[in-house]
Design a protein around this nucleic acid. Structure first.
Ligand SMILES: [Mn+2]
Ligand SMILES: [Mn+2]
Ligand SMILES: [Zn+2]
Ligand SMILES: [Zn+2]
Lengths: 136, 136
DNA sequence: TCATTGATGTGAATCGTAATCATTACTATT
DNA sequence: AATAGTAATGATTACGATTCACATCAATGA
């Protein structure tokens, strides 16, 4: 997902175009990995030192709900990244040092037989963790 | 892993046998799902109202490091359960309502080809979430 | 341009967790 | 059983991440 498409989605849901949201999207569009909410905030502060954490968290949550961002919990923090391809379900390798990700195109749910009688499956999580080439 | 084996492990590492640790292990041994630190604390308070949260967190962390407990992050909390079978690698279905788990004996790493050149894989997470029969 | 409505900043609150340290409880030894 | 050494505990304090309430402000469409 790119910034333009994100704005389309936002407009569809009648969210307004604001400097803060522009900055958040601009920042995350240029990163290729998961980024902690606090780091997004650091960036916003450059142009807008008075930006509040609440604004950051509110918008990140909104964007994730709209499918603009992907979300994961990494060592007790919420981290976000541009939803790389909303149309194609996939998973990620995540570097535990810098947060960079790589696609894992296959989904384990398609490859293993789960025997869970009576349960209502709502979702799943599959992530591989490690160090990317630059972080070793 | 049962309580006796847990005590063996603790003794091997010269951890002492205390009322609090007995209560923690007793409690978790009878549960069949992940339990939040706070809930473990609630139980300990019955016999020992003055127990400190630090004692709970310290011991849960210790037990997890020793492989006595398994640990996962579920809605922003750390949750623990008896390590069901340390010898056999496997995964879990987790009920998002009550925390109960069911084994998933297969591991996706054995069933999908990951193409991650140059990365150093340190671990992976595969969990299926949903509602167990009792929670629907 | 104006009015509407949503977005923002402020500051404090909450939540889960960790650090410090003096006191207390185990455990092994005498 | 009394002791000594050491680990565990509870009290307090603090922390980082996130959320809340609410007054103010700004983007948008009419
Ligand atoms: Mn991807
Ligand atoms: Mn299991
Ligand atoms: Zn990296
Ligand atoms: Zn359940």
């Amino acid at each position: 997902m790119n910034v333009e498409k994100a704005w389309e989605t936002l407009k569809e849901h009648s969210f307004k175009r604001t400097k803060n949201r522009e900055a958040i999207l601009e920042f995350l569009a240029e990163r290729d990995g998961y980024t902690a909410a606090m780091d997004v905030g650091e960036f916003l502060k450059k142009d807008n030192p008075g930006v509040s954490f609440d604004t950051i968290y509110r918008n990140l949550t909104t964007f994730a709900e709209l499918g603009i961002l992907e979300e994961t919990d990494l060592n007790g923090e919420r981290q976000y990244r541009m939803h790389c391809d909303p149309g194609v379900h996939h998973h990620h390798f995540i570097c535990t040092i810098c947060g960079k990700t790589k696609h894992i195109p296959t989904c384990p749910m398609d490859h293993i037989a789960v025997n869970l009688p009576g349960v209502e499956i709502q979702g799943h999580k599959f992530e591989i963790y490690g160090k990317c080439p630059q972080c070793q």
